[in-house]
């Protein structure tokens, strides 16, 4: 694998009390591509996300992001390298409004230190810049009209978008998206994927996406990895994968 891979996962293994969740997973995401990770429920996709994002430490193997070894690095540090993730079930800051949720996700806000927060003039300028950016991002994702709503009082689909907005606030190099279009109607799902494609083309962002709705997903992504029982069993372009007999068997067996 050469340098054009922004994310590389090498021989990662993770077990939970004897149950093997990930078994010798090797994969990578090319810079500036939308890569998909698919597989039946319980195949280990979310576990792999959690290993990449630093929630779990792998038993064996390495994870590299943008030239850094991020194996077992805590999530907050991984974020600062430019890798941001969203969750399968959106995790809102329930006590805060949507706007505050998005504002909080900004990077390097000087007003977030205990000492500097006391003097408003130090952080006011940065805060105004962040506020404008937050409004821009929310406008882009069409959630500006719910900005003042408490984030616990919005629909599940809107939560997905708020999470995406939070992710975009830091101008990440790469996004890890866990089912970005789950619980969303097909029209909006297409809109979300169009928006992601826009991010890829305009901002050069790389993406790794878990998604169950292959019909929609395959219209947008560049490359697909298929997981089954903790292993990568197939990979290739959407066309290659959809013709792969192994993949067909897995999905038929699942049904």
């Amino acid at each position: 694998m050469s340098e054009d891979y922004i994310l590389k996962v090498e021989h990662v293994r993770k077990t939970f009390g004897g149950i093997v969740a990930l078994d010798d997973v090797v994969m990578g995401v090319r810079r500036g591509t939308m890569t998909a990770l698919i597989g039946p429920n319980g195949s280990g996709k979310t576990t792999l996300f959690n290993v990449i994002a630093g929630v779990y430490k792998p038993d064996r193997g390495k994870v590299y992001f943008d030239g850094h070894d991020i194996t077992g690095m805590p999530p907050e540090k991984i974020y600062h390298l430019g890798l941001v993730r969203t969750f399968q079930i959106p995790r809102m800051f329930k006590g805060m409004t949507v706007y505050e949720n998005v504002l909080t996700a900004a990077r390097n806000n000087p007003g977030e230190s205990y000492a500097k927060s006391l003097i408003r003039s130090i952080w006011k300028r940065a805060e105004l810049g962040i506020a404008n950016k937050a409004v821009d991002t929310m406008k882009l994702l069409k959630i500006l009209h719910i900005a003042k709503n408490l984030s616990s009082a919005i629909s599940g689909g809107q939560m997905k978008l708020v999470e995406l907005a939070r992710g975009l606030m830091s101008d990440p190099k790469m996004l890890l998206l866990d089912e970005p279009a789950a619980g969303v109607n097909p029209t909006l799902a297409h809109e979300i994927f169009k928006f992601l494609r826009h991010l890829r083309d305009e901002r050069g962002m790389s993406m790794l996406i878990i998604e169950h709705r292959l019909d929609i997903l395959f219209d947008y992504v560049d490359y697909v990895y298929v997981m089954h029982r903790g292993r990568i069993v197939a990979e290739g372009t959407p066309e290659e994968v959809s013709e792969n007999p192994v993949v067909v068997e897995i999905y038929l067996g699942e049904a």
Binding site: E76, Y79, M92, F93, T104, S113, Y114, S117, R120
Partner: peptide
């Protein structure tokens, strides 16, 4: 201040707060 938001984010969901 922005600090207040960060503290509340930790209170509401620490893992999500780490993830940002």
């Amino acid at each position: 201040s922005p600090l207040g938001r960060v503290l509340k984010s930790i209170r509401d969901d620490e893992l999500a707060s780490k993830s940002i």
